[in-house]
Simulated scan of single mutants.
Amino acid sequence: HNRSELFLRGANELLGEWTTHKNLDNFTFDETFVIYYPLPRFLVTSRENQELIARIHEGLLKAYDDGSLLRLWEDKYLESVKFARLSERKVYRLTNPFIEGIDPTWKRYVYQVPIDE
């Protein structure tokens, strides 16, 4: 129908999607730009689960501090992020109005990929 189709994927998802679907007709991905949209992930539970909340929080902080959380992330996603070659793309940054007012300390834990703008 002479229409464009666009399905945004995270850089951490690109390689898996490409590997799985590259044999489909007209399946491709753009290599010239990247859309950055902050989308932190949070665990959600009842406020009544204070013991569970404290245990998960403490465990995540320990894993972050000792580097094991980053190693786990890199084992699962780094190959795909490298495949995306983000530093070779123009970056378009969008804002996420749904995270306004959230404590900004979550940004500390976001994997920092070198991106040239």
Rank of each mutant, 00 (worst) to 15 (best):
I53E: 01
F27V: 14
K22R: 15
K107D: 06
K107F: 06
Y92I: 15
I53A: 01
Y92D: 00
N49Y: 13
R41K: 00
W73F: 13
Y92F: 09
A63S: 13
E88G: 14
L69W: 07
L60H: 05
G67M: 04
H21T: 09
E58K: 07
I56T: 09
N23M: 02
L43E: 04
K76V: 06
G59F: 00
V91R: 05
V113Y: 08
T105K: 13
V91S: 07
Q112D: 09
Q112M: 05
S87A: 09
T28C: 08
N23A: 07
N26C: 09
S80L: 08
R85W: 00
F27M: 11
G59M: 08
T20R: 12
T28E: 14
I35L: 08
K90R: 05
V110K: 11
L78W: 10
F27Q: 11
K82R: 13
L52Y: 05
F98G: 13
K76M: 09
S46P: 02
L52T: 15
F33Y: 15
W18T: 06
L43T: 03
I99Y: 14
I102H: 14
P40N: 08
L70F: 04
N96E: 10
E31N: 09
E58P: 06
Y77Q: 03
F98A: 12
F83C: 04
N23P: 01
G67A: 07
R89E: 05
E88I: 15
Y92C: 03
I56L: 13
G59L: 05
D25F: 07
A84T: 02
T105L: 14
I99P: 06
F98R: 12
P114K: 08
L94H: 11
F83G: 09
G67H: 10
Y36G: 04
K76I: 06
K107Y: 05
D75H: 07
L24D: 14
H21Q: 06
D30M: 08
R47S: 03
R93S: 15
N96Q: 09
Y92R: 11
D65N: 14
D66L: 03
Y111K: 05
A84H: 03
L78Q: 07
I53P: 01
Y111N: 06
L60K: 01
G67K: 15
I99R: 13
Q50M: 02
F83D: 01
D66P: 07
K90W: 00
W73G: 06
R108W: 13
P114M: 06
D30Y: 02
H21V: 07
L72Y: 02
V113P: 01
V44I: 15
N96K: 11
T32S: 08
I35P: 03
H21F: 13
E100W: 03
H57I: 05
E58W: 01
V34D: 02
L60D: 04
S87R: 08
I53W: 00
L94G: 09
D30A: 10
S80I: 09
W18D: 05
G59P: 00
N26Q: 05
I102Q: 12
L69I: 00
L86S: 01
I56R: 03
E58Y: 10
P104S: 14
W73R: 04
L61F: 10
S87N: 12
G59W: 02
